[in-house]
Structures are given as C-alpha cells and as structure tokens.
Amino acid sequence: MTFEWIQIPYSLMTLLIVIIYAFFMTALIAKIGARAGRRYGIRIHQNFLDLFKNYSLRSSITHGYMFYLAPVFRLTGGIGLLLFVPTIYGSQMFSNLSFAGDLILALYFIFFGTLGMALGAAESGHPYAAIGISRGLSQVTMAELPFALSVFAIAVQYQTLSVTDIVAAQQGGFMNWTVFTNPLAVTAAMMSFLGTMMRSPFDLHLAPQEIPIGPPTEYHSSYLALMQTNRNLFPVAKVVIYMNLFFGGATNWPVFFLKVFLIYLFSAFVGVVFPRFRVEQSIRWFMVWAVPVGIAAILLV
C-alpha cells in the first residue's frame, strides 16, 4: 500500500472516534463491574469529567525530564499501536498507516508504553512506583511471551506479517476466523491478553490495597490526564489487534464497536470473578498454562 497525504487526516479521525468510543466503553465496563458488586457504578460520561478535571488543575510539579516524558511515551504506545494497524478492514478511510510488516511494529508498541512508564516512575522517586513498575515489567514480559508465540504461529499459518493480509484471509464467514482455524494460538493469545489488560487477577502492579496505586503514584494534573487518555485508548488499540488477528477484523464501525466491546468484556468478566495474583503466582500461571499452549500452536501449524 502506497502512502498518500490524505491518510493523515483520516487516521486522526480514526483516533478521535476510537478515543471517544474508548472513554464511553471503559465507563460502561466499569459500570458492569460495579453491577457485579451490586453498585450503581460511575456515570457513563465520568471518564470525560475526570479528564477535564485533571487538565484544569492549576499547579503541577515535576521530578525531572523523564517524569515529563513518561506519559508522552505511554500515549505514543497507545496511538502508535492504533495507527499502524487497520481499524476497519477494506475501508480506505480507516485503514490508517498499515504496511507490510506492521505486525512486528505492533508487537513492539505493546511494550513501548510500559518501558516509558518504567523510566518515568523511577524518576518520580516514590518507592511504591518502583515496586509497581518492577512487578509490572516482569509480568508484561512474561505475558508477552505467549502472545509472541501465538503471533508467530499465525504469521506462519498465513505466510505474512501484514495485519491487513491476515484480516483479508479471514473474510467470508466466521468459520474462517483464526479462532476457529487455529484455536491453540488464540487460546494462548487470550491468556496473554488477560495479563496485559491491567485488571485483576493480573493488576498486581497497581494493587490498590497493597502498593496504592503503583507506578503513577506521583503523577497528577495534566500528566495524569495524558495517562488516563492512554489508559482508555491503549486497551482498545490492543483489542483492535486481537480483533484483526483472531476474530476476523471489522468491515464497518458497528461491527467494530461490538467486537471490541465483547473482547474487552472477556477480561472484565475474568477480573470480576478472580482476586489478584501475587507476582510469582502470575508469572507461574503464564509459564504453566499459557506458554505451553503457545509452543503447541507453533508446533502444530
């Protein structure tokens, strides 16, 4: 696919739609979680209010350059992830900046934000931030392994590294989706998905009752607002990857909204049911359950 200038405003439009959708959907998921606890839950537009509130704070302090950069890195991870994969398959407007090798780039962007956060959290100097980020990094590294294995299995299966081509191969009925043609790889990837969604039982880097609230302890005002944006955007961007790789992609916006919501809901349901792991339990869980499935997926392709 050749690059055209018109793609830039189109991509920005995608970004805007996805961010607005992400804010409402995250609130809806929070509401569903609250209903599971028999609460009414937050208002559906609460995430926007929190965002505006944080932007409107008048004072802010800094702990150094990396403290500034970390939220930017983090948001770059989310936006980059979204922009380099096709959001709506077959649409010239919303295919974004996808290109032949974008699968590898996406893998990289998933990790990018966490690394940026590690630098910023270390600079903030708060002990909880350091504990949180060391837990978070070890878990994300571990959760990334089954996902990488499963992505390789799929790359071998479809003989391509382009997300667009993988989506194209899945068109024509849901029996063509990877989830049915290669269930092992999808199982491994969904296990890894749980680990990177920052929800219990894998929210051990935030651990609200233990090291409140982990890496972003020192972040406030606009820094926090940036990170909040990413907190809503990044999971959706990640779900977009999953949707494209495993669930047949989306050919129009309503299908996109529905599929993203359902995939996201999967992690929310798991989170409502299970309590938090400790870091060694979580890593052992990935080692014992997710990684062998991923290896099997590669072997059986």
Partner: peptide
C-alpha cells in the same frame, strides 16, 4: 459500598495526595 455508592456522584478515593 453498594448501600451508598458515592461513585455515582463522581466521587472516588485516591491513595496519593498528588491526585
């Protein structure tokens, strides 16, 4: 808790004074 649930008024608790 479910009985009062202040979250529906936009109120929530933060563990750090910065936020």
């Amino acid at each position: 808790t479910p009985r009062f649930d202040a979250y529906r008024f936009g109120v929530q608790w933060r563990p750090t004074p910065r936020q």
